[in-house]
Amino acid sequence: MGVGIEVTNLNAWYGSNHTLQDINLHIPANHATALIGPSGCGKSTFVRCLNRMHETNPIARVTGSVRIGDLDIYEDAKPVEIRRRVGMVFQRPNPFPTMSIYDNVASGLKLNGFRNRRVLDEIVEKSLKNSALWDEVKDDLKKKSGASLSGGQQQRLCIARALAVDPEVLLMDEPASALDPVSTSKIEDLIFQLKSQYTIVIVTHNMQQAARVAEKTGFFLNGRMVEFDSTHKIFTNPSDKRTEDYITGRFG
């Protein structure tokens, strides 16, 4: 099961650039939450703060607190531990090119020293089923490289890879922006199915996508969170003028 996320006074810098300013937010457990906004508004930086990926860049800096479940991720644990509990799917599909499909899915466990072959087999199968890729790849799991799949399949492989370590939260940073419409709709179906079991945070610049998959939506602008509410409210009756301008296409 997923857990909720409590963000308090989160600030992030990129060099001297103050990319996130005073973000306060509660992301509910076992729901999909969408983050929208024009490019450069800080929404990607925000999700990268949720699994401490932001700080992998030497010039980046974060202050404030993020609690995932009962864990303060900047106080109580090391990044490696956080990232095992918070899975991430990136903008461009990034399967490991040297590994087979099977090894890609199993990589999170294998690279952490997990050796039980029988359990691995089960987890790989389950993860590929959960990401709706099993039927397409089950015959050449160990024969084909992850890089030989199509773009949409690669992205679903990356989702399976993230699911295999059984995370509590799944972060998706524009997971469909590099994909064709058919693959995009498959990814959206997947999110729809997965959200009953995981807390999903999805960054998107596609407002229809946010409306289709998410219960909650946050609107980011210039490093601040302008509005956070139920998706229905944001898209029908936003309380902030800037949100309304954005969703009606007056800018961005």
């Binding site: 095992r84 509990r85 466990l109 952490n112 359990v119 987890i123 089923k129 370590v165 059984d166």
Partner: peptide, 18 residues
């Protein structure tokens, strides 16, 4: 396979002990 939660929690427990 899917309905065997023992593996699932085993995975999470394994990783948290790492």
């Amino acid at each position: 396979v899917v309905a065997s939660p023992a593996n699932v929690s085993a995975v999470r427990r394994y990783l948290s002990e790492r």
